[in-house]
Structure formats: C-alpha cells, structure tokens
Amino acid sequence: MSDAVIKPPHGSPSAPLVTKQRTLAADVWRQFRQHRGGVVGAIVFLTIVFLVIFGPYLHGINPAALDVRSRNLGISFAHPMGTDNLGRDMFAQVLAGGRTSLSVGITAMMLSLLLGTTIGVVAGYFKRLDGPLMRLTDLFLALPLLPLLLVIIMLFRDVLRARFGPETGIFLLIVFVIGITSWMQTARIVRGAVLSVKEQEFVLAAKSIGTRERRIVTRHILPNVLSPIMVSATLGIATAIITESALSFLGLGFPSDFPTWGRLLYDGVNFMTINPSRVIWPGLAISLTVLSINYVGDGLRDALDPRIRGR
C-alpha cells in the first residue's frame, strides 16, 4: 500500500501531458488491420464496388444490346462472362445489376437497421413501452410477408412512378418495403442486449451523475450493443439482396429489362442446363458480396471492442 499514498495537495497542477492523444478512429483502424479476414473482406468488397461503379466505363458494351447471332456463348475476350439466350453480354449485365442490387441492399439494410435498433433500444430501455413495441414486432413477424408486399406494391407503385420516375420510384418502394419488413429480428436482438446492459452498474453510475436519459442511451447503451447490431447489419444486406431478387422474380420489382443480380439469377434458372454460367456469375457476385461484408463486419466488431483491441 505504499505506492499510492504520496500525493500532491488537491488543486495543484499535475504533470503536463507527455503521451500523444490517442484517437478512437486511429485505434480502430490499427486493430482492423490486424484482422486478416476483415482486411481481405474489405478488399473484395471494395473491388466489387469499384467494378460496379467504374466497370461500365471500362467494359463499354450496353447490357441491353441484343445480338441474336452470338447467343449462349462461353467465356471469351469480347464477352468475359459469356452471353445469354438473347445475346446480351453477361459481364455488362452483372455490372449494371450490381449497381441496383448493392444500392438496394445497403439502403434497405440501413433502413431496417435504423428501425430495428430504435425500436429495440426504446423497448429495452423504457419498460413502459416494452410490451406495446414487442407486440408490434410480433405482429410484423406474424404478417404473411408476400401478400403484404403485393398489396403495398400494387397500391403505391404507380403513384411513386409518376412522382419520381419509373426507376427511382420503384427503387424507393422496394427499399421501403424491404426495410419495414425485415427490422423485427434486429429489434428483438437489440432489445435483449439492451435489457442486459441497462442493469449494469455503469448505467446506474451515469444516473447518479445526473446524465440525461438520451445521453445514457447514446453514450452507454448503444456502444455496448454494437456487436449484435453489426452482425444483423451484415446479414441484413444479404437478405435485402435476396428479397429484392424474389420481388423482381414475381414481376413486382424492377422492370424486366432492368438487370439486378437477383433478376439475372432467376432469368438464368431456366437455362441452367444449357448455360450454367448464367446462374454461376450473378450467384457468385451475391455470395462474394455477402461473404466479404460478413468478414468486414466481423473485423469491425472486434476493432470497436476495446477489450479485444490491442491484444
């Protein structure tokens, strides 16, 4: 007990700061680089994003251009992924489809994450709202999704198309529909995590300091339920891409001449025996995206946890 007893009198200036101030971003980045899976995932994901954004400028074939003389071709220099039954270039279609699929996936995931996290945190933190909000969640889980989607799209498709143009309108509609039908899992998981975090003593300590409820939630609760949120975010992108493709398959999504990964996959199913590459390429794109995002999420989650960081 001799190490701590000699202290300067209260109020005396302490020694000046010698160590450099560490920033959270630098710490997180340093730890993220240690996570091999995360780095590989990030590289793959950024490559996909880069290709999808700039690819059409490098590979200058119009994805909608028909060429009946070169149908169902295999891999060649002119057509790196072959062609489909109408002679359209698959590589150009996958690139164009990626733009839609990725933006739908990411936007819908963000919307469902925002909804799910908000509802989960509010339900977990405010006891009075727990019952009503969780019953609402159960209600949404119990809804038959496909008929609901049909009704929503039938009701609003034309209104939105008229308002924002055919592509933006349907984009907004699909993002909204996917967002509001996929937040329930996140809400449940986040609520559970909040329930356990809010009983911890540091929350009580914050209360005894006089921290406002809003700040308790943002400063103490949210950062501590980050892991389940990250996991459901990465899974959410995958679900959103797949739901979008299901909608397109039913003819409720984007117009049939507008390629998305899901659409390409479903169009290719009938030709799988003749030309398996039509299923393989868009399928590979979806899988690679989902897998790489999962790894990035894994790496980020570890990097954001100070207990794992620096180990």
Binding site: R22, Q200, E201, A205, S208, I209, G210, T211
Partner: peptide, 28 residues
C-alpha cells in the same frame, strides 16, 4: 455521489478513463 461495489461493472468498458471521469463534468 456514489462509489460502487464492483469496479469492473461500474465503468463503461467502451469508454476511456479520461472520458469516464470527464462525463460528470460534461453533463453539468
């Protein structure tokens, strides 16, 4: 103010010591 029993549980694991001690100063 209060000093808690379990020093592990009463400090937010995601905050630095500096921000934990600064929290009351910020709040008031």
């Amino acid at each position: 103010q209060m000093i808690f029993q379990d020093p592990q549980a009463s400090l937010n694991p995601r905050m630095t010591v500096g921000s934990i001690i600064a929290e009351p100063l910020i709040e008031h």
